[in-house]
């Protein structure tokens, strides 16, 4: 008997090359994939922030590298009335402007949420103040507030409401309020459109149910709209507070911190001291002093307002 055995062929496992094995290595892959992002963040976020913080603890001026002076800059600032005034005005500016923006923005959002003719056109118009570059609108307000050529002064004199031009930005308090007004004007679209988006997520049947339950319009707002809007309100408010507290363009374009430093925000004062004034260390210290305020505002609105039990589902305990 002749047995013929079929030729047996076994595939030889090819050993992967060194490069292929390297790319199969999870740790290596993670590093390779993360490197570009980390690099960008380090270069453009961490380094400037770190440099700013480091500068705050030195006596660097333009043209002269500084030496480490510890908290000397801060000690000096604590006794500097101009700095203390800018802290006061920053907080005041943020508080009043945020209040105004949310009051008016919410009102506008509620109006836009109704069935209005030409609704989408109106919504587009509402966005205009936000689309225009801030410096442009700041210059427009500068004209509006101009001591001689102000249109408001002109109209009120024409109508006989005032005898002479209105003082908008030439004394401390009128200037402060004028800037706050300009900031509110500019901030409303962001608030209104964000809150409108929030309002539109509320199911109309909830209002119908409340209507049948006997709720008045105010009660519907108080018990349905407001609590349902709370999460988005918290997020929008966090952003708004950050943007307002760090505002620079409006103030710098309209008053440059004047008259007599009365309208300096911390951001404008930091710039004023650091760049035109040349005191880089001191300017950086003012900027660093803003951080605790921002962290506090963020934590407050995020944890104080954002998460609610009813949003989370799952277990109640």
């Amino acid at each position: 008997m002749s047995a013929t055995t079929a030729p047996v062929w076994t595939k030889t496992r090819q050993q992967p090359g060194a490069l292929a094995r390297l790319f199969d290595n999870k740790a290596f892959l993670i590093i390779v994939c993360l490197a570009p992002a980390v690099g960008l963040l380090m270069t453009f976020l961490t380094y400037p922030l770190g440099l700013g913080i480091w500068l705050a603890f030195t006596d660097t001026t333009i043209g002269r590298p500084g030496i480490w002076v510890g908290i000397e800059n801060f000690e000096f600032l604590m006794e500097d009335p101009i700095f203390l005034n800018s802290v006061f005005y920053s907080v005041f500016y943020t508080a009043v402007a945020t209040f105004g923006k949310f009051g008016l923005g919410l009102w506008l959002a509620l109006l836009l949420n109704q069935h209005l003719p030409m609704k989408s056109l109106l919504r587009a118009i509402i966005l205009l103040p936000w689309i225009v570059p801030t410096v442009l609108s700041a210059i427009a307000f500068w004209w509006i507030y101009d001591p001689q050529f102000s249109i408001i002064s002109y109209l009120s004199m024409k109508m006989g409401l005032t005898e002479g031009p209105i003082d908008f930005i030439n004394t401390a308090w009128p200037a402060r309020w004028s800037l706050i007004f300009a900031n509110i004007w500019r901030g409303i679209p962001f608030v209104a459109i964000s809150l409108l988006a929030g309002l539109q997520t509320i199911s109309p049947s909830l209002y119908e149910a409340a209507l049948l339950d006997g709720a008045t319009p105010w009660q519907r707002f108080r018990h349905i709209t407001f609590p349902m809007l709370m999460p988005i309100l918290a997020i929008v408010m966090t952003f708004s507070i950050i943007f307002t507290f760090t505002d620079f363009q409006l103030v710098y374009a309209i008053t440059r911190g004047g008259p007599v430093n009365s309208t300096h925000l911390m951001a404008t004062l930091a710039f004023q001291r650091g760049i035109p004034g040349g005191q880089l260390g001191e300017g950086a210290a003012i900027a660093v002093a803003m951080i605790p305020f921002l962290v506090f505002a963020t934590l407050f609105s995020y944890f104080g307002l954002a998460r609610r039990k009813w949003q989370q589902g799952e277990s109640n305990d």
């Binding site: 199911s203 049947s205 909830l206 409340a210 018990h223 349905i224 349902m228 609610r308």
Partner: peptide
């Protein structure tokens, strides 16, 4: 139809 319960 969707019950319209107040979620909060």
């Amino acid at each position: 139809q969707n019950y319209a319960l107040y979620p909060h």
